[in-house]
Amino acid sequence: MKLLLEIVLYFSQFCVVLAMLLCMLRLLKGPTAQDRVLALDTLWICAMLFALLLGISFASLVYFEWAMLIALTGFVSSVALAKFLMRGEIIE
């Protein structure tokens, strides 16, 4: 059962890293600026999922705080970028 969980964890890490690569492609390719912001937002979410996966694999609760911080920072950065794209300034 340990082997099963190890294989599944490796598979999940591979999938999440692949998802991050796909987001990266959209981030580099995106025809408009809002595409890039959307890709960056998804990249933050994938990074948070990766932190959670690391927490499960190393059986440590420290990674939970990483995930929390990444989710928080991602939200703030996405909202700031969206506001900037809409208005040309963030705080008016």
């Binding site: 599944v8 999940s12 999938c15 692949l18 991050m20 987001c23 959209r26 959307l38 998804t42």
Partner: peptide
């Protein structure tokens, strides 16, 4: 159950970002 949830979550994550691309 943990393995099933992890597989489900990772495949769904991959599908979502594939949709983004």
């Amino acid at each position: 159950p943990v393995a099933l949830l992890l597989i489900c979550g990772s495949i769904i994550t991959l599908v979502g970002t594939l949709g983004l691309l």
